[in-house]
């Protein structure tokens, strides 16, 4: 069980006002309008921003852990990705850095297998700074998979993805679910967020305004209230506009 109860501020501006939720393993979509505090919440959970409160995973308080121990439990794919002048394979291998100083032969094989699975096996030698936005997103997603943490945080992961990679990405989410991981998936794209999720959280003005399952969210009233978007169906596909 993943339990969060926290508040955070930028200077005097309170951004998260007592956010409280608890979700089980599987994929949870964290939805909200721009500026609602989604990314801030994700960064607080990851330990990248200061906050007051607690973040617990299976009863263990994560906020008091050392950076290295936290890195064995929480992995994050940020929305804004860096462009290091390093080979893609080396960057993906960084995912194992919380565990050991050097990659073992077995870990090296794992790195290659994950890259192949995401369709970036051919980019191993390429410098990350020369890759497109979508390719970089695949590299850092591969790094996150190699890190293999029980809690996975994804900040707008589908932003640069083309359709073929989106289907690969959703199958990766299914695999994570099967492995019993807890995935928190921030998205401003309602279709992507709801399609992937078992549970849905809505963040409004720094607090959780709705927590429920996908079916409850899909009935339209929740989305209409939160985003002012209307639900409609065309040829069996649910859309919000």
């Amino acid at each position: 069980m993943f339990e969060v109860s926290l508040s955070a501020a930028y200077g005097k501006k309170q951004v998260l006002k007592g956010v409280q939720f608890s979700v089980g393993s599987g994929v949870t979509a964290l939805l909200g309008r721009n500026g609602s505090g989604k990314s801030t919440l994700l960064h607080c959970i990851a330990g990248a921003l200061p906050f007051t409160g607690s973040v617990r995973l299976d009863g263990e308080e994560l906020s008091g852990l050392s950076a290295r121990e936290r890195a064995k439990r929480i992995g994050i794919l940020p929305q804004i990705l860096p462009s290091p002048d390093l080979a893609a394979e080396e960057v993906v291998g960084f995912g194992r850095s919380p565990y050991a100083a050097r990659l073992s032969a077995h870990e090296r094989e794992d790195v290659r297998a994950v890259m192949d699975k995401l369709g970036i096996g051919g980019l191993k030698e390429r410098r990350v700074c020369t890759l497109s936005g979508g390719e970089r997103q695949k590299v850092f997603l591969a790094m996150l998979l190699v890190q293999d943490t029980p809690l996975v945080l994804l900040d707008e992961p589908t932003t640069y993805m083309d359709l073929p990679f989106k289907s690969v990405f959703f199958s990766v989410l299914e695999e994570l679910k099967e492995k019993g991981k807890t995935v928190l998936f921030v998205s401003h794209d309602l279709s992507d967020g709801i399609m992937a999720a078992d549970h849905v959280l809505l963040l409004e003005e720094g607090a959780i305004s709705f927590a429920g399952n996908r079916a409850e969210c899909l009935d339209g009233r929740v989305i209409e209230r939160a985003f002012g978007a209307r639900r409609f169906e065309t040829e069996g596909i649910v859309l919000f506009r």
Partner: peptide, 21 residues
């Protein structure tokens, strides 16, 4: 050295990989 190598990923990712930035 090993920790510095991760700084090229930015503070968020370096921190998420176990570096006390």
């Amino acid at each position: 050295c090993r920790k510095l190598a991760l700084f090229c990923l930015g503070d968020t990712l370096a921190g998420s990989l176990g570096v006390s930035v």
